[in-house]
């Protein structure tokens, strides 16, 4: 039986875009889930659990990304990833990240 795909759309809103640090945070968070997770930008479809893959999206401010997850924890995974994106990748380090890239 085909496992259903959970889908969610997010928009990158931080001015620096999905650069190395956010890409790392994104992949690191995705890795915590068992589900297969993909990130789709137009015709480009990549593995959410690989920084290398996420960086190929070249997602600048305003880019719309579609997240697909398939597996037992698909809903939780997309909820967590969407929250990370919506928070502009906010962490304690956000301020220093701004100045050091």
């Amino acid at each position: 039986m085909e496992i259903p795909v959970v889908e969610r759309t997010v928009v990158i809103s931080n001015p620096q875009g999905l650069h190395a640090r956010p890409a790392e945070m994104f992949a690191r968070l995705a890795l915590r889930f068992d589900s297969e997770i993909e990130v789709i930008r137009e015709s480009l479809r990549v593995d959410a659990k690989s920084i290398l893959h996420v960086l190929t999206l070249g997602a600048g401010q305003g880019t719309k990304l579609v997240l697909h997850a398939r597996g037992a924890d698909a809903n939780e995974a997309l909820e967590a990833l969407a929250r990370l994106v919506d928070s502009d990748f906010a962490t304690d380090e956000t301020l220093s990240q701004e100045s050091h890239g």
């Binding site: 001015p15 620096q16 875009g17 999905l18 650069h19 190395a20 890409a23 920084i51 290398l52 893959h53 960086l55 190929t56 999206l57 070249g58 997602a59 600048g60 401010q61 100045s99 890239g101």
Partner: peptide, 15 residues
């Protein structure tokens, strides 16, 4: 610092 787009495009190209 004022050219985040270039930085992103370089990372995109490398990866």
């Amino acid at each position: 610092p004022d050219r985040p787009g270039d930085h992103l495009r370089a990372l995109e190209n490398i990866s």
